[in-house]
Every structure is written in C-alpha cells, then in structure tokens.
Design a protein around this nucleic acid. Structure first.
Lengths: 189, 189
DNA sequence: GCTCAATGTATCCAGTGGATACATATCGAT
DNA sequence: ATCGATATGTATCCACTGGATACATTGAGC
C-alpha cells in the first residue's frame, strides 16, 4: 500500500487528493488541470479517471477535505467571536480551496458522502458554539445562519473587490464589529 | 450605426454584450464560450477581440451591465426590507449573472471604468436606503455592510447547497427574519 | 499457479482561448 | 472626389483541456 516503484502507483487516489489540494488551496481551480496534476504525480492523466469520475468529482473530493479541515479548525472555538475569526482566517488563508468549497453548485454535495458528512460536521460545530443551548430549533438555526451568512458574505464581497482591502486582522475585526460580537471600542480576540 | 449588411456588423460590441448577458444570465460563465457567442452573432470568433481584450474583459463588461441593472432594481426600494428583498430577487433571478458579478476576483473592477461606476452606484443606493441619515460615516458604512454581507452570504450558501432549498419567497422571508428586518411573526413585504 | 478485476498507458477527439497575418470597409484630411 | 490610415472582420494556426476507447500490466483471491 506504500508508494511503489514501477507501474502501479500504490495509492494514487490519496496522493492525487493531497496534490490537488495543494495546487488549488491558494490559486483556485480555474488554472488547475487534470493533466498538470497527473504530470506532478508522474502518471498518465487518464489514470486519474480510475479514481474520480471526472474533474467535478475530484473537486468535490477536494471540497470535502476542505470542509473537514475547516471543521477541525472551528472545533477549537469556544464562543461566537473566536468561531467567526477562525472561519474567516481559514477562508482567507486558503482562498482557492474556500472557493472550491462554496462557489460550486455541488449537486455533488449529496452525491459525495464524504462531502455531505464534512459539511454536516461544520454545521454541528457551529450549532454547538453559536446557538443558545435552550432555544427552540428555529431560533438556533437562525443564530447559526446569521453568523455564517455574515462571515461568508463578508469573505465573498472582500474577494470580489467590493470592500476596501485591509489586513487580515483588520478584516476580521471589522466583521466581528458588524456582527455585533465586539463592543464598539473593544479589542477583538 | 444600425446593424449593417455585409462585412461590418455595425455595433458588434453592444450586440455581443447583449447576447453574452443573455447566455450567461441563467447558466453562468462556465459553459459560455467566445466561439459560441461569435457563432450566434454570425461573426468570426476572433472579431470579438477587436472590442474586448480577452474573455475576462468581456465578462467584466457583462458584470458592469449586471451591476447597472441591479442598481436600477434597488433604486425603487424605500426601506431595508424591500431593498434586501429586491437584492435577493435579482441574485436568484439571474444566478449566472450574479455569479459573474461577484465570484470573480475582478482585478478588472478598477480596470473597467463602467464596472467601477456601476458598483459605486449600487453602494450609493445602499447607503441612501440602509444607513441612518445622521450617523457618522463608519456607522453608516457598517449598517450597509451588515445587510449586504447577510444577503450575499445567504445567496452564496443557498447556491452552494448548504441551506435547505425553499421557494424564493420563503428564502427571502427567512433572510429578512435572520437580518432582523421582520418582527418574529409578521408577514414579509 | 492462474485468472480476472483493478489500475495505468497510449492515442485519439472536439472544443477552447489566444496569436499572427491578411482582407475589407470607414472616415477624415486634402 | 480620392486616398490612405485606421478600425473592424476573417482565415488559419497553436497549445492545452477534459474526456473516450483500446490496450498493457499487475497483484489479490481462488
């Protein structure tokens, strides 16, 4: 099962995912090609099709990995402000990956179990950190969505160039203020 | 200047923009090609390059048209709730166009004057409708951004499949509630 | 050991954005 | 009016992409 010598790669699926994630994390998927990926792995581009139905399926798998990493990062948060900060930091740290995770109409989302599972994990963490424990379900869901929508919207508008560019720290600080999670003149976490 | 007979088209730039907007509005830019566009206009695909530097520039022009239309649509709003509803309706009505407007790193945004101008018009309308008239500038900006981020985030999460699918009306209603623009049990505009 | 499904390779295809070279038309200066 | 510069459109090429089909190699289970 370890990386083997000649004909068979050993674990192409995992290696391809790792490599693809690395290629996409910063630069996004627009300039990403199956052939470039295959070249880096020292393999014919067609070999990838033994593990992923098509380019879209590979991207869905990459997105799943992204959501899993995101959930890990968020799990450490203990309150809304740190949650939001961690979320924004992830999205701004791996812009290409975040785009693949959120800017595709993943019909895939229900067709790819790992993706569905990873997204559900993020939602579970969000509920635990962001929602009032004893509120009814609709309220809890809306509490989560309010923060998530604000964070996701802020990130999107920033990336699209609609906002003044700031340092990451200032950006996070501003989002926290807009979300009402930081009292007017206080310092953000 | 009207559509001419033989060799010269007459006003290829405008015709191309119209046609591109039509092709992209619903389906987005992923499956959009310069060649398909040129075919529809009865012209060699290379002719388009006389009017647009490259594919990206054409998309920037399409985005500019989109923002102009959006600003028109928002101008009729008189209060935050109707503004937000109009915004969401636009984004959900022309998903492909909205994606081109917001999901590209328009370095273009400052390189394309018409795009910059159209975005500024949207921001101006938003300030007029969403901000407290006599508040200081930072507050006004944040009031606008809170609504814009919520709307944009909601649209993005919905499109990505992170939310339960609902009818457009229900979706708008839910966003208004989350934004705190509709009292708990009241009917949305 | 042998077989056969899993995995990789070789090669082809149509479609894409873009470049270069050339054809045709329009318009302003004379 | 005409003539030449310039804008506009065409013809043709290129490298590259995702995907399809046919074949080679391999190793796991019988």
């Amino acid at each position: 099962m370890t990386a083997r010598a000649d004909y068979h790669h050993g674990d192409l699926a995992a290696a391809a995912l790792d490599e693809a994630l690395g290629l996409i994390a910063a630069d996004g998927e627009a300039r990403f090609s199956l052939r470039a990926l295959a070249d880096r792995l020292g393999v014919a581009h067609r070999a990838l099709y033994n593990h992923f139905a098509d380019r879209e399926a590979l991207l869905a798998a990459v997105a799943a990995r992204g959501f899993a990493q995101l959930a890990d990062g968020l799990a450490a948060a203990s309150e809304p402000a740190t949650f939001l900060a961690a979320y924004v930091r992830f999205a701004r740290g791996y812009p290409g990956l975040y785009a693949v995770m959120t800017e595709r109409h993943h019909a895939q989302i229900n067709a790819t179990p790992s993706l569905r599972a990873a997204v559900d994990r993020v939602i579970a963490v969000a509920l635990a950190v962001l929602a009032t424990p004893d509120a009814d379900e609709d309220t809890r869901r809306r509490e989560v969505m309010r923060v998530w929508m604000l964070a996701h919207g802020a990130i999107g508008l920033q990336r699209a160039g609609m906002l003044r560019l700031r340092s990451d720290a200032d950006f996070i600080d501003e989002v926290l203020r807009i979300a009402g999670l930081v009292p007017p003149q206080e310092k953000a976490p």
